[in-house]
Amino acid sequence: MVETDEKTETTVDERPIRVLVAKPGLDGHDRGAKVVARALRDAGMEVIYTGIRQTPEMIAEAALQEDVDVIGLSIHSGAHMALFPRIMEALRARGVDDVIVFAGGIIPQDDVPAIKAMGIAEVFGPGASLDEIVRKVREAAAERRRQPE
């Protein structure tokens, strides 16, 4: 299921894309995270789902231990502007600075530019399709693997 990329000269990494689906914040709204996790898994990726109520440190630690390509953050509590910078900082502190981070949940459009400025690649709002999420995760992971080590 891993996409090969014919445009590059380098050998395409054949390992399945590894994704950490994580729920920061205190809210228990895990429906979206679970549906997305399952869709990514059905698309051939290896998905690690953290469960709910994860602190920034727990998420960064899991990303490091699991050696993931992509992190998907799902949050519905409204605490994203407080927690996302701490997650990015916790990742950097562990040297995990080349992982692609996506976010989703109930996140007002007005906050999106600031979130992208933190280094988060994309914010999926309510109504985002699974196809779109799978495609963007795949593209981002392929792009990351093309980067020289």
Binding site: L26, D27, G78, A82
Partner: peptide, 22 residues
């Protein structure tokens, strides 16, 4: 709000960013 729902006071470390939101 979520800290209250989980039995935390507003100044608990886990409450960060969650005050008054939900």
């Amino acid at each position: 709000d979520l800290p209250t729902l989980y039995g935390y006071d507003t100044d608990h470390p886990l409450a960060m960013g969650e005050f008054g939101k939900c």
